[in-house]
Structures are given as structure tokens and as C-alpha cells.
Design a protein around this nucleic acid. Structure first.
Lengths: 215, 215
DNA sequence: TAGATTGTTAATCGATTAACAATC
DNA sequence: TAGATTGTTAATCGATTAACAATC
């Protein structure tokens, strides 16, 4: 693999979107595409696409463009989607169970290997081929299975301590749905925050900005 | 309200986070805070905070800083969280039902007034005080209740046509969870996309970037 | 070869940071 | 008044866009 060091966050955040669009083209049997065509499809500039891709390597061919299948695969490799990083879900409430059922972990570089909660109401329930386990058994489980990543679907009040407990067990990559900015406290952790509440408020702002009249 | 026109998207995206941090401070009975203190808390620069806030007005006081309660309320007003824009949920599968139950619409500027699906398996089910209705009744419902916004928890294949159908009914603000970039096709619509799959892939990338050794 | 389109360098634009005068 | 901290202007930095030589 070529060097990916120091690629800017804005480029990284665009990778999944490139991957999605290329996947779509692929399923519609498009074999080649130029940066100009892809740009018009994705509402970007051709320059930006070429700049972005060249952070990782020269995947195109002058006078031809890009091979859709090859580029799709390359971007998948760059993101590491072919891996299966073992991942646990902490918190099997409504949101946790839905995430477990809804996401395609296998094609996103992960494998969901365990689900934990501390409420007797959900412990023992089956969620997408896994059984919800008692949080008390987390240490033993991690010793055996060595998960590297965790999904946090827990209240913000316990997010910090839970993350700390997981870090001690060698789990330092977090997909954080709790209403809490995990990244701030954890030097050395890899954190992706999903703040659904923030997203809804952003929508609210934009509606008001677009239609200020109706007070 | 003062002028918000032309505020950059990066500033807007930070507003909910400011609101969250100020809410936290408020709940811990902090009455005043300087841009420097808030900056260290949020891991921003004091300059950025003052710049951001001054897009909307001068909420601080020289030599004193900002009143936490007042600023919290101001930002809430700027985002329009005190409104109750009527909103419908389209798609009452796992994800849709969870979103309906999980989000605090009332304190985010919305009111969930209807839930729709086309599958007999979920029509008639109760979800958080609402009953899932048949998509066939969408037109009649919109005529009566005039929702302005919709949550789309539907497969990407039907996202476009569903959004189009809603636009015809006067619903042109979308909180889109479908695996599809709605914004691209709809001039005049207000769209906030939530791409959970993209987020998971971004985490995958960052894990690989941080720990490239373990192939 | 001629045409097309990339990879890459240079120019522009916008967002972040620094500085400081205004003022509470 | 003196000290602190804002609001705001100027400087810097980074990301996007434009341009073009390289090359398939």
C-alpha cells in the first residue's frame, strides 16, 4: 500500500462517498469514468477528485480516465474495508439493538463479536445472532476475544467511565453514539462520534434560515 | 432576531456543540464563562469562539465574558429550537421506530405528528404514542396536518421517489437516513443527510491509519 | 499522430488564528 | 482607575480551484 500519512480529514471524510458512488456506477455496469463525469455526478469539481485520489496514488490513466471497478476496489482497500476488526456493542437499548441489526459490519471492515448491557431486561435477548451478555463478563470476554473496537450506545453520563474501562481492556477504537464528545478526553483513542441530536438541530437551523418568515 | 444570512456551514455545524457544552455548564451551575475557558473545554481557540458567536450578535461583555444561561438560550433561539415544526417519519422499520423513540424532537425544534410505512407487518403498530399509518393515506394526512419536514428511514432505492412525492405535498425539509445523497437532486429542499455507513467506514479508515501494522 | 484526460504545480479562496483597540 | 475580556480587523494557514505539461 502507498503512503496515506497526513491526509487531511476533509479528504478522508469524502472517501466513503466516493466509494458509494463508484459502487453505484459499478452496479450499473459503467466500466470507465473521467474525473469530469464523476464530478458532475457527485457535485464536486474534477480538480478536487483528482487531488483527492492522488493523495493515495495514481489510479487513473491519461486520456482514458478511471476504471470504475479498479478504483472502487482501491478505495475500499485504502479504507481497509476488507478487514474484520472484532467489535463489541456496549448498550443494547433501542438504539444499540437497531445499530447491531441495521449495519453491514462485514462490508465496512468490522465483525460484531459481542453485545453487552447491564440491564436484566435485555441480558439474554438475541440480537442478530448474538446474545446480549452481562457487562460483568466484559473483562473475561475481552481477554478471550480481544476486540479492538466498541460501539457505545449508552447514556452520556457513563460514556467516559465505560470508555476508560474498555481502554484498559485494549479496546481503544470507538464508534460513539452517546451524547458526549469522547474524543476530547482520550489521547491515543480513535473516535468517530455520531451525534444524532446535533444533526437534528442542524436541520432545525437550516429550516429557519431558509424560511424565516413563519415565526 | 439579528441577521444570520450567509453564515458559513462550518460555523452552523458547530452551533449544536456549543449548545450542548453550555447546557452542561448550566446544569453544573456555572454562571459565567470566558471565551478562553470555553475554548479549553471544547478544544477550540478563543478566537474561533468569539468569531463564531459574532456571526449572530455580540452576546458577551468586555471584561466579564459570557453569561452561560443567556448564551445557551440565545444559541437555542438562533437554531430555532423553541419552534415545533410538524414532522412525519417515513419508514417504520427497525431504524425508523428507534429514531422515533430515541430522539427528543420537542427540544430540537420539531414535533413528530405521523408515522408511515407500506408494510402490513408494521402498519397499525404503536410507536411512541403514534400509530403507524399506511403510506396510502399520506396525501390525506398532509392535506390536514401540513407537516413541513420528514424523516426518511427507507431503502435508498425509493428515497428519490418518496422525497418527490413529499415535495408535492409541501414537505421539503428532510432528515435523510437512507443510503442516498438526497441533496443532489432537490433544488429548494432543505436536507440533512445522516450516513451511518459512511461514518462506520471513516472509523475503519482511521483505525487502519493509526495501526497499519496489524494487516 | 491527435485527442483526451490525468497528475501536479500554481493561484485563489475561505476559514482559522493572532493581535489589539474598545469597553465593561 | 486598573484588569480583564470582548468585538473586530489583519495575518496566516489550509483547502479548493484553475491551469497546464506529461502521457496514454
Amino acid at each position: 500500500m502507498p503512503k496515506h500519512e497526513g491526509v487531511s480529514l476533509s479528504v478522508i471524510k469524502r472517501l466513503p462517498r466516493y466509494y458509494r458512488f463508484l459502487g453505484d456506477l459499478l452496479s450499473r455496469d459503467v466500466t470507465r469514468i473521467s474525473s469530469r463525469e464523476l464530478a458532475s455526478l457527485m457535485q464536486l469539481t474534477a480538480s478536487q477528485i483528482r487531488q483527492d485520489l492522488n493523495c493515495f496514488g495514481g489510479f487513473g490513466q491519461q486520456g482514458y480516465g478511471y476504471n470504475v471497478a479498479a478504483l472502487h476496489k482501491e478505495i475500499g482497500n485504502i479504507m481497509g474495508l476488507n478487514k474484520h476488526t472484532p467489535m463489541v456493542l456496549i448498550g443494547a437499548g433501542n438504539l444499540g439493538r437497531t445499530i447491531a441489526r441495521h449495519m453491514d459490519f462485514e462490508s465496512s471492515g468490522f465483525k460484531l463479536v459481542g453485545i453487552f448491557d447491564d440491564s436484566p431486561r435485555v441480558i439474554g435477548q438475541k440480537v442478530s445472532s448474538l446474545t446480549v451478555q452481562d457487562m460483568a463478563g466484559l473483562e473475561a470476554f475481552c481477554k478471550e476475544q480481544s476486540p479492538r473496537a466498541a460501539i457505545l450506545c449508552i447514556p452520556k453520563e457513563v460514556a467516559f467511565e465505560t470508555a476508560q474501562r474498555l481502554m484498559k481492556l485494549g479496546v481503544n477504537c470507538f464508534w460513539n453514539f452517546s451524547h458526549y464528545d469522547l474524543s476530547l478526553d482520550f489521547e491515543g483513542a480513535v473516535v468517530e462520534n455520531v451525534h444524532l441530536g446535533d444533526s437534528l438541530m442542524t436541520l432545525c437551523y437550516q429550516i429557519n434560515a431558509a424560511y424565516p418568515e413563519d415565526e
